[in-house]
Nucleic acid binder design. Structure first.
Lengths: 149, 149
DNA sequence: GCGAGAAACTTGAGGTTGTCAACTATTGAT
DNA sequence: ATCAATAGTTGACAACCTCAAGTTTCTCGC
């Protein structure tokens, strides 16, 4: 216990750390919104995650989806099964490599994904409440942060 | 399909929206880190979530934990069961209201929670890479954003 | 070419998470 | 004293997740 306190004291707290602590709080709210939106559209969280990671026109191999979701291939099988059963997604054979199956959004899937994105697109109160000047400042700062990634 | 594009065009995109879009990307990375940390400490995500929402000294009623986690009371029963089986947490009767049980971190639980927090405390590359001046700017901006919450 | 090894996907077992409905014990309000 | 509401648990059931095993297909060295 005393060890923990000592460790905490050892490390200098940078303004970046403090910013990060606030961001984590913001993220908890965003997580709630994600879950609420998923529930509203009758998607389980993992299904929503998969849907959101598929580009409307593109065809993703299942293993790529697994990589994006950070989970096992075998997991994606079930998730895509259920999305396919709801007609949101289609499996398509891939001639160049017959081991691979591509997953494609159906029109219904594209539409639902767009609705989901629309729900998530508006920033939380905390951000929209800022003055436009501050919003611009924040945007530019964040752009600078993630550039050359 | 055309409907979607039209809807997207209708709405003005504010700098706040753009900032939020970047933040969502940052959050995806943070989510991965959360899962990786949980796995490393052999905690399932929900268990980690519960652990992180308990203050080291305090005693939380189970229903309060459920509210914080945004899930059903019955769900918390199982999660606390498993945390208790691992000795990270204890159930304690609450004399003032005998329907209620309080959940308290054990020393082992406190220690594990601290290790978890330490893992999450350092900001992602994108932020730590900023100049100290920018970090300060970001911190102040975020403080302004979440103040009077 | 051919064969060994690797990759993509599926299946099945086993544990965790989540919701819902039903149940017990307790509280609080009339 | 009774009745409705609350806290927690239990059981049923679906989804999620990982791991190990299995099938099909590819790739690479020879």
């Amino acid at each position: 216990m005393a060890v923990i306190m000592a460790a905490a004291r050892e490390r200098e707290v940078s303004p970046g750390d403090e910013a990060w602590a606030i961001l984590r709080q913001v993220m908890i709210g965003a997580q709630r919104r994600f879950l609420a939106t998923a529930a509203e559209l009758e998607l389980h969280p993992a299904q929503a995650g998969a849907l959101l990671r598929m580009e409307p026109g593109a065809a993703s191999p299942m293993h790529e989806l697994a990589k994006l979701l950070g989970c096992d291939n075998s997991n994606v099988t079930g998730i895509v099964d259920r999305l396919e059963a709801r007609g949101l997604v289609t499996r398509r054979p891939y001639a160049q490599d017959r081991r691979v199956k591509h997953v494609v959004l159906t029109p219904a899937g594209t539409e639902l994904a767009a609705r989901f994105r629309a729900h998530m697109a508006s920033p939380p109160e905390a951000i929209s409440r800022l003055s436009v000047a501050d919003q611009r400042l924040l945007r530019d700062l964040l752009r600078r942060a993630v550039e050359n990634d």
